[in-house]
Write a protein that binds this DNA or RNA. Structure first.
Lengths: 367, 367
DNA sequence: TTCGGGTAGGTTAACGTTAACAGAAACGGT
DNA sequence: ACCGTTTCTGTTAACGTTAACCTACCCGAA
């Protein structure tokens, strides 16, 4: 006896069928208040039979919270973002919240739209993992000030009432670079930023700092790959950036002996460009990536990279957010910075005199 | 004069401030009905000053639609899913709909939860891009029958009132395999399924069909990699599956001369396992992947693979869904199957007698 | 002058749920 | 027998928005 019901079943429908008031049904569904065992059974049976589903809109409207959290991500295909979202979900689920994800495609306009959508639909809080932008930050500030709980991950933006989770990429970049320096490298290229825009990228600052502290001069020709408008270019992937950037570096008269790439995808692009040119890794050129994506352990050679505790960052951001949602929304900012860890694999080995000479020979051949 | 307002601003607040009724404010905000130009300006000014944001819950409750679409994805880090979601978003945005994404982590239970969350929050429709499962399909059927518009992508499940978009993976798998056969390969391995479970995977069926049609026997020893419970194993990535599977194949007395991998990640895992063992690609072992993810053009050697029109699938699914939402929800199923395309790159070349002998020699050395 | 139609706005009542309160019955202790 | 407490259920009034209906004015045509 199934009806091809058009309108969804409401509490009132169940109430009528079970000969009680909607309020009683509500109590049964939510399991609060006193309801006689017999009544409860009857109501539950009817609800099941009618295939009842609560109306989250009405419920949210009345209760002034939706038990829903929104997360804004720049790029859905990024394993880093994926891992973050797993951490977030783990925590939210434990507390009965649902996660809805919005994608901004690294576009500030879409960023703002995502914030608005989530705010309009009254998500109880928002986790933001997109890169900072002027318009985005402005809108975010308004939201925070209007009382929406916000938790930021790795976004270069601070607000007294928005929590913040980051990893220490300055140190991460520093240690990656120092690792190469300690292996004997003096000409270390960086792929993935333009010199003008790159200063906002912490890991790049770390690179510069390491060079300076070890008395190496920064050679602008060794810094390649950041197209200013790369983010607007659809389909211009970061591995392409790594490949293109590396090719540029290989054309130099004085080639770098080591590469620090902005992230693992860029590193993999560079890695393949190097192989394609007939040079060997790590003997001819060493390479360090960033993020330690799963694939980094499965390239050949496997990739030395910098790992950040990604899932933990997601978990922490979610915990901060829940603290704000269920506690004092006006409480001062919680902030936590995670440490990164250099993971040494096969793509970096000490630079020996032998390999240097060998490189010179090859260079002549190629030229 | 900013107030640290706790409660969000409502139409009534604006109405009071602008000396009109909430209804008039509603008309201004939504731009329908007659409102005097002066009044409109005044209301808009007040709304802006008070930083008004419509309450999507109340609005949705009253209008019985939220202009929101949910999409359920198995794995957020998958470039294929990412591209799908881009296509979906493109279309939705044109029509003023917002996309919320739920992740099921390839877990049927989470799948059902995602369906429920979206239905409870009254998304106007749901796009499902997760793998079929018993519980998932059951719940989906209930939803569809209760009138929720549903559009499926590549899910092995049919319903008279749910639209369906797929690519012809049977043919894709067939052509990938035939390509290898035409290159002269006779021992072609498949990585990524267990024989028992694999029959549901269309591309694997295509593989079997191609072998049969060309008079090659299917050797069970050449089919590896599908752990029955791989999906429940957290952190067991598909590239790991490719690597492990390949290692198993390399141990065989009679090694395959070509590999067809379930997807590009698996192929990359296999590719690196082969390199690590000292064999060459494609001379010693040829390899074909599936999906044509961006990285496939940047491995070394670049990867021969099967491309499916991913973004188009997303777009079509979204168009079907909107047709159902804005048109007749009971209309018969729309169905569209896209064709796949073999993309030949460097990882496959003709198998020559020379390379066969060479392989034999190497095999002796290794052994 | 009357009438039709466009313009400008207000009034009412829902959408589905639940917080808050209220009434009544049942129970246990003195 | 009486009173306080626990159990069970019902009533009312919101939450914020908008569809539907209604009133009133103004303007030009008949």
């Amino acid at each position: 006896m199934k009806k091809p019901s058009k309108k969804p079943v409401t509490l009132a429908d169940i109430a009528a069928q079970a000969a009680v008031t909607p309020m009683t049904v509500s109590r049964v569904i939510n399991g609060n208040g006193y309801v006689h065992a017999e009544t409860r059974e009857r109501v539950l049976r009817v609800a099941r039979e009618m295939n009842y589903r609560r109306n989250g809109l009405a419920r949210g409207l009345k209760r002034q919270r939706t038990e829903t959290v929104g997360m804004v991500i720049g790029d859905i295909a990024n394993p880093f973002a994926a891992e973050l979202s797993r951490g977030v979900r783990e925590v939210l689920e434990e507390h009965g919240y649902t996660l809805f994800i919005c994608i901004s495609e690294h576009n500030p306009k879409e960023d703002v739209q995502a914030f608005n959508s989530l705010a309009d639909h009254r998500a109880d809080g928002i986790i933001v993992a997109t890169r900072a932008s002027k318009t985005g930050n402005e809108r975010l500030e308004e939201l925070i000030e209007s009382g929406v709980p916000v938790s930021l991950i790795g976004r270069d933006f601070r607000h007294a009432h928005a929590d913040l989770v980051t990893a220490d990429h300055l140190k991460g970049g520093y240690e990656a670079t120092r690792h190469l320096i300690q292996l004997g490298h003096k000409r270390i290229g960086f792929i993935g930023v333009s010199l003008t825009q790159g200063l906002r990228l912490r890991r790049f600052q770390g690179y510069l700092e390491a060079l300076n502290e070890h008395g190496l001069t920064v050679d602008e020709k060794l810094i390649v790959g950041g197209r200013e408008n790369a983010e607007q270019m659809p389909g211009y992937s970061t591995e392409e950036m790594g490949c293109d950037g590396m090719l540029k570096l290989l054309e130099l008269k004085e080639r770098p002996t080591a590469i620090f790439a902005r992230n693992d995808f860029t590193a993999m692009g560079a890695l393949n460009a190097i192989k394609r040119s007939g040079l060997r890794i790590p003997e001819d050129i060493a390479i360090v990536g960033y993020d330690d994506i799963p694939l980094a352990a499965h390239t050949s050679p496997t990739l030395t990279t910098v790992r950040q505790p990604t899932r933990e960052q997601g978990r922490t951001a979610a915990e901060f957010l829940l603290g704000r949602i269920e506690g004092d929304r006006e409480q001062p900012r919680c902030e936590r910075t995670f440490q990164c860890e250099l993971v040494v694999r096969e793509s970096t080995i000490p630079l020996t005199e032998a390999s240097v000479t060998q490189t010179r020979k090859r260079q002549k051949k190629t030229a």
